[in-house]
Design a protein around this nucleic acid. Structure first.
Length: 397
DNA sequence: CCTCCACAGGAAGCGCAGGAGT
DNA sequence: ACTCCTGCGCTTCCTGTGGAGG
């Protein structure tokens, strides 16, 4: 065991790990200059005291939507005219009531207590904006999470009609494509006054972004250029997700530290990739309900010990039958003194596990036991089993 | 042919935590 | 802060499908 001092004085490739975190907003936002420009143009009427246009931003994960919006917000706050911006993540504030409550209490601290009615908060917001002739921009991140978005947009549009002085406008952000069609036509045309699509970053752009962050976050010369390029290429090959690219390079740095290497090379990036993927799998397992884990555990067990019906011809080796898996699951339950779920629910668990990509299932169809399903584990069973067991030691089962 | 077995998946209902609304 | 109600996780029951065996 190494002491705390040993740990903090251990040599590291990092200079400042914070700049590699996904929530960090760099002072210079690369490859989104055009988008920033376009947003500023849409906002600019505010400078002349006119109503800015609402904006809708669409783009996949890690395409810089939130970073760009926050960057613009900073610029808005710097404007000379009375302008102000508020950022809300709609995963947390997912109804017009909560949004209104949050906005009002941020602006008017004396109202930071529960129990106010919707209409009261609405009046207070109007007062606040109207008194100062404020140009108020609300950024709604993950706007598709709002349950009564139509009502919210209607409310804000009406607010603009009532305001003699000042205006309220919206920047909505989402990564859901089908979301637009779920909107009421009137609120749609209102929210989509200016529509923008953020394309995924290309490999070259990701290189640039990684370059920038590596310069700030790593000790000079600690990361080989080819390692950066590899990380960029991997991320671009997936979805052009900058967050994923950053995670790769961060993990690669951590691996280098663990191994006591002074330089991050392609090898560390490769390891990081496997590492990050495994992280995802074990995270998925950790968040599953206990009995779903037990089902998966039963499948892993049988995959190791072999199926009683394994003499199926035609490339079906290694597949298990639904019935025997359920038996094994019940046995595991008895062993740990837990009441097994019903067979019906067990099937739902199987379907979920398939959806998560942890199991592979095929309909039997030909010649076996009527209508059943053949089940196979999607990862090496021993590793999977260990993965689940690790989880239980935390829970205490 | 019919019946039974082994299973899939729909429908209805139930208890309860936690979210929505005031 | 407080109440009401929705939705979730699950069980029970049921209908449907297709091979096995008489």
């Amino acid at each position: 065991m190494s002491s705390f001092l040993d740990i903090i004085s251990k040599p590291t490739v990092f200079k400042d790990r914070n700049v590699l975190s996904p929530s960090y907003i760099p002072p210079m936002l690369l490859f989104r200059e055009e988008e920033i420009e376009k947003i500023m143009v849409a906002i600019s009427p505010a400078l002349k005291g006119q109503r800015p246009k609402n904006i809708f931003i669409y783009g996949g994960t890690g395409s810089g939507k939130t970073a760009t919006a926050k960057h613009v917000m900073k610029k808005i706050e710097e404007m000379t005219s009375p302008a102000s911006a508020g950022y809300l993540n709609c995963r947390v504030y997912n109804s017009r009531y909560r949004i209104l409550q949050k906005v009002v209490k941020d602006r008017i601290p004396s109202l930071d207590k529960p129990g106010f009615g919707l209409s009261f908060l609405y009046e207070k917001l109007l007062e606040h904006v109207g008194e100062k002739g404020l140009q108020f921009v609300i950024v709604l991140d993950e706007v598709d999470m709002i349950k009564d978005l139509d009502d919210l947009i209607y409310m804000l549009t009406r607010a603009n009609d009532e305001l003699k002085n000042g205006n309220i406008s919206i920047i909505g952000i989402s990564n859901k494509l089908d979301f637009k069609s779920r909107l009421d036509p009137r609120s749609r045309s209102s929210l989509y006054e200016t529509e923008m699509v953020f394309a995924p970053y290309t490999s070259r752009q990701l290189q640039g972004i990684l370059d920038q962050r590596v310069k700030m976050g790593f000790v000079e010369g600690a990361v080989r250029e080819s390692a950066i390029n590899l990380a960029a290429a991997i991320a671009a090959g997936e979805t052009g997700d900058a967050r994923y690219a950053l995670k790769l390079i961060l993990r690669a740095g951590e691996i280098a530290d663990e191994e006591g290497i002074k330089e991050v090379t392609d090898g560390e990036v490769e390891k990081a990739r496997r590492n990050v993927d495994e992280d995802v799998a074990s995270e998925v397992i950790a968040t599953m309900p206990e009995h779903q884990q037990l089902v998966l555990y039963a499948v892993a067990n049988l995959s190791i010990s072999g199926s009683r019906y394994s003499k199926l011809g035609g490339g079906d080796e290694g597949f298990l039958m639904s019935g025997e898996v359920y038996e094994e699951y019940c046995r595991v339950c008895r062993e740990s003194r837990k009441k097994p779920r019903s067979a019906r629910w067990y099937r739902e668990y199987l379907n979920d596990l398939e959806l998560l990509g942890l199991l592979i299932m095929v309909e039997s169809g030909r010649g076996i036991k009527g209508h059943t399903r053949l089940i196979k584990i999607a990862y090496p069973p021993a590793q999977m089993k260990k993965n689940i067991e690790n989880n239980w030691s935390i829970v205490g089962g």
